[in-house]
């Protein structure tokens, strides 16, 4: 293992993380729910009366964030997606299905779950990180 010091950005990472934590704090104290993006979005695939408008509002907020962020960052040029179209299709299916089946993703398990010291979320985080490490190892160093 060799740390890439030119790519490593600990200060913005920590600051961004604190902002994610603040959003999750507002979410539990204002809406009484744990902030998990896959859970919020997943409910939109079976819209039920009285249970979709709030989900959509959150998603529109996420979608709008580049408009605000774009005032400070050149966002389009710092988004580098190496995966090809076929890989993106497969990855999207796996992420959507897997996050629903495992009841959470990086936000719900990886940040909120760990922050409330949930053993369930710790297991989930170890599983998806382990799978991520293994997949990238195979794709970049074996095939």
């Amino acid at each position: 293992m060799q740390i890439d010091w030119t790519a490593f950005t600990p200060i913005p990472a920590l600051l961004g993380g604190v902002i994610l934590g603040l959003a999750a704090a507002l979410y539990i104290h204002l809406h009484g729910r744990l902030l998990g993006v896959s859970g919020i979005v997943g409910g939109l695939t079976k819209p039920q009366a009285g249970d979709w408008a709030w989900r959509l509002s959150f998603v529109v907020g996420l979608l709008s964030s580049p408009l605000l962020g774009g005032l400070f960052f050149d966002l389009h040029s710092v988004l580098i997606i190496d995966a090809g179209w076929g890989a993106l299709i497969l990855a999207g299916l796996l992420v959507g299905f897997g996050a629903s089946y495992g009841s959470g993703c990086t936000s719900g398990h990886g940040i909120c779950g760990l922050a409330r010291l949930s053993a369930r979320s710790l297991v989930a985080t170890i599983a998806f990180m382990g799978a991520g490490f293994f997949t990238v190892f195979l794709l970049r160093h074996v095939f």
């Binding site: 999207g92 989930a124 599983a127 382990g130």
Partner: peptide
């Protein structure tokens, strides 16, 4: 589920 998510 988490493993599948991690692969994607």
């Amino acid at each position: 589920g988490s493993l599948l998510f991690g692969v994607g």
